[in-house]
Nucleic acid binder design. Structure first.
Length: 568
RNA sequence: GCGCCUAUAGCUCAAUUGGAUAGAGCAACGGACUUCUAAUCCGUAGGUUGCAGGUUCGACUCCUGCUAGGCGUGCCA
């Protein structure tokens, strides 16, 4: 598709140049030629609204401009063009000869697993930091969404040639984990019989800490011999390790494997935050007030200054965070992307300003918000989800429930698909009951079923001793059905979808694309026979087409981390 | 108060970043298994794109002002 598009581009460019030289088009230079999508085959294969765009400058009617341009395209000289015509308000629609469709088929067969991949980002390193949940509880479903999206974005960026990695920032230092230690201490002492204790505001109420405290009780009462301060510190560290291990296990179950885990505690211990403070002091970005040290955020466009050293002498999380981002830069990434949860939205501007204060390029850091996931009951009511109140659905619980209905592998597939099918900046309603009870009508099954059907055809062919011939001896002209051409056009769109999804960080386009492809294949399957056509030449050509569909479905599902089953 | 996000079919969402007649899936109704897998297919129905202006050949898309919901908002992360 890309090659043919650039061919057409050159032809149209030439035509416009000729028209200008012939004084039939009163514009100064050849403009960029945009291509608009062709939603229906009636609009040809490639269309451009260029004449509409030139109307004002040329002071001519769009249709007249289009006619002039088309006049200078000599179809006889360009065998790739079957027909070129003007439609609607002045669109130029180009109809391609079948040969480019067959080229698409040849390309897919040749590239196989690599079809859809390009090397545009070659030599450039990108890091995506995502999930990065506090190690104070199990991962919830918002983290699940972030995990699915981040994992897929890394796949997409790698597919277009970047060297992209997954990184998790472990917030194992600071006030939150102190609260964790305190909460565990209370649960521990409650388990040992103390009654007048309560988890304070800001502590962690979740049931999982009772269970963890039970396991500490099994170690005996010896922890009571420590001072409360020592005990809280010990429990904090034990709790972090326990909960982090649990998070890792959940992520692996979900098919997400991080390349790098960075500890905030280690960053703090490295002295890098101190260097940041020193740097900011030297640049006069800091001042003292109300017993704390403040950063002049307003100098960088922020609406408020913010505290970087609390009155008790401790850094707020901004300092290690800034140090962490400088560390990322020093590791040589050309670009870093942070995927943050909806509750960190206020952090976006600050983070970008800190990066600016460090003297780094504005677009080096990209921050995207993964919006919230609402749990919806069957009656349509939304349940609030707050980790601090202990009321939330964990990713594990979600997979468990789905797993009961459709098995472990499909449970992961369904969950990933649901998280990926929506644009990142939209709030996602996750109706758990619907996902479970209607699993059989789930869009992910629709896509997987299309793939399984392709496999099944080859299984049948094998049993019937039908051997697929090499592509160069197959007569692709046999693929003459409109539905076949439509499928090939869709297949030809795949690389562009991958590129666009990766560059715009819009992973949700891939599920939609695959659903559309499956939506073309299923009707085709029902209407036309591949095997048993009594015409082996036709069968061979259709087998090739089926193989292309299978390849693209598999490649797309792989980007999403969703399985492509051989049979269902 | 201020900032960010959202508002599209009964429900959940798309719409190739300003292009042609705004599309899918659920839900509803009527059909198709002697067939390479019926987890499928075919058909019917569903819209003043939250409201009001503006920009232009053209607006779901951009600008301004409203309305509603969510999130955030100087010593939690």
């Amino acid at each position: 598709m890309d090659k043919i598009k650039s061919d057409i581009y050159v032809i149209l460019e030439g035509a416009i140049r000729s028209a200008i030289e012939a004084k039939e088009l009163p514009i100064s230079e050849v403009p960029e030629i945009p291509f608009s999508p062709t939603k229906t085959p009636e609009h040809g294969d490639i269309a451009t609204p260029i004449a509409l765009g030139l109307a004002k400058q040329a002071k001519l009617a769009p249709r007249a401009i289009a006619e002039t341009i088309v006049k200078y395209v000599n179809p006889d000289k360009h065998p790739s063009i079957r027909k070129i015509e003007i439609a609607g308000p002045g669109f130029i629609n180009v109809y391609l000869s079948n040969e480019w469709l067959f080229d698409t088929i040849r390309e897919i067969i040749a590239k196989k697993d690599n079809y859809g991949s390009i090397d545009k980002g070659k030599g450039k390193r990108i890091q995506i930091e995502f999930v990065s949940a506090n190690p104070t509880g199990p991962l919830n479903i918002v983290s699940g969404r972030a995990a699915a999206v981040g994992d897929t974005l890394v796949n997409l960026l790698n597919a277009i040639g970047f060297d992209a990695i997954r990184e998790y920032y472990v917030n194992d230092a600071g006030g939150q984990v102190d609260r964790l230690g305190e909460s565990i201490d209370i649960r521990y002492r409650q388990a040992l019989g103390e009654t007048d204790l309560e988890i304070p505001d800001g502590g962690y109420q979740g049931e999982y800490l009772r269970e963890f405290a039970e396991s500490l009780v099994e170690e005996g009462k010896k922890h009571l011999n420590l001072s409360q301060e020592e005990r809280i510190e010990l429990f904090r560290d034990k709790g972090i390790k326990h909960l982090l291990d649990q998070q890792k296990a959940t992520l692996e179950r979900f098919g997400v494997y991080f390349d790098v885990w960075t500890s905030e505690k280690a960053i703090r211990a490295s002295g890098k935050p101190d260097q940041i403070i020193q740097l900011f002091r030297e640049k006069n970005y800091l001042y003292e007030a109300e017993g704390a040290t403040w950063f002049r955020m307003t100098d960088f466009g922020g609406d408020k200054d913010c505290v970087v050293i609390r009155s008790n002498g401790e850094y707020t999380y901004f300092v290690p965070d800034a140090a962490y981002h400088r560390d990322k830069y020093e590791r040589g990434f050309n670009k870093v992307i942070d995927l943050l949860g909806p509750d960190h939205q206020g952090h976006v501007v600050r983070l970008k300003n800190f990066v600016k204060a460090l003297g780094l390029d504005d677009d080096w850091l990209e921050v995207d918000i993964i919006q919230q996931v609402n749990l919806v009951d069957s009656d349509g009511n939304r349940r609030d989800m707050s980790k601090r109140q202990g009321q939330f659905l964990t990713l594990d619980a979600l997979i468990d429930e789905l797993s009961d209905a459709v098995g472990e592998q499909f449970a992961v597939d369904v969950a990933r698909y649901f998280f990926l099918m929506r644009a990142n900046n939209t709030h996602l309603d996750f109706n758990l009951e619907l996902a479970v009870t209607q699993a059989n009508e789930n869009p992910v099954f629709y896509i997987q079923y299309a793939h399984a059907r392709c496999c099944s055809i080859f299984q049948q062919a094998d049993e019937q001793k039908i051997q697929l011939k090499p592509i160069d001896v197959i007569n692709l002209e046999m693929l003459s059905e409109p539905s076949e051409h439509e499928i090939i056009r869709k297949l030809a769109d795949f690389p562009q979808n991958v590129l666009f999804s990766a560059e715009e960080r819009e992973a949700h386009r891939i599920p939609h694309y695959l659903h559309e492809l499956a939506g073309l294949f299923h009707p085709y399957y029902n209407q036309h026979r591949v095997l048993g056509t009594s015409n082996m030449e036709l069968t061979q050509a259709r087998l090739i087409l089926v193989q292309c569909v299978q390849t693209v479905l598999a490649n797309g599902l792989k980007l999403l981390g969703i399985s492509a089953p051989q049979s269902m």
